[in-house]
């Protein structure tokens, strides 16, 4: 089963794009093929489902990218920082190896977003791109399956 982890703060406007996409991708796949975990932030507890997955796709907002663009990259295991509350995809892969002896292939979709202001909704301009991002992520996942 492939695991999709979409993360971000749903009260900080476009930061929620990862969660939104993870939630909506679930309806495009049979449940036995895809597990989605929308979450507020990356935490050590994710190491266990990561270690059990055939492959992992992380999805996150990125204010430093040009808005509405997408960067798709491989994630490698990396050492953690000193602060457990700033967990990265790479450090989770390391933790999965250390605790459960297994790490699957992993990729990260970074989505350029324009606004991280206090808001419980995506900005209208980003919302228009959601179908495009869903199609993009779905195409990646279907290649893996």
């Amino acid at each position: 089963m492939i695991l999709v982890i979409g993360y971000g703060n749903p009260l900080r406007g476009d930061d929620a794009i990862g969660q939104v996409l993870a939630e909506q991708l679930a309806s495009r796949f049979a449940p036995e093929l895809l597990q989605t975990l929308p979450c507020f932030q990356l935490t050590p507890e994710l190491a266990q489902p990561i270690s059990a997955a055939a492959a992992v796709l992380f999805i996150d907002a990125d204010i430093q990218l040009t808005p509405y663009t997408v960067l798709y990259q491989t994630v490698q295991p990396e050492p953690s920082g000193a602060l457990v509350h700033h967990v990265t995809p790479g450090s989770l892969l390391t933790l999965a190896t250390q605790l459960y002896g297994r790490v699957p292939p992993a990729r990260l979709i970074r989505i350029g977003v324009p606004y991280l202001e206090y808001s419980a909704e995506l900005s209208p301009s980003l919302r228009e791109y959601v179908p495009h991002f869903l199609d993009y992520a779905e195409a990646i996942l279907r290649k893996w399956l």
Binding site: P44, E45, P79, T94, Q98, L99
Partner: peptide, 17 residues
């Protein structure tokens, strides 16, 4: 930190998680 514990005492880290 927890990652250091995972490296040296993985069972305890696993149990905590």
């Amino acid at each position: 930190n927890l990652f250091g514990v995972a490296q040296q005492q993985p069972q305890i880290a696993r149990d905590g998680v």
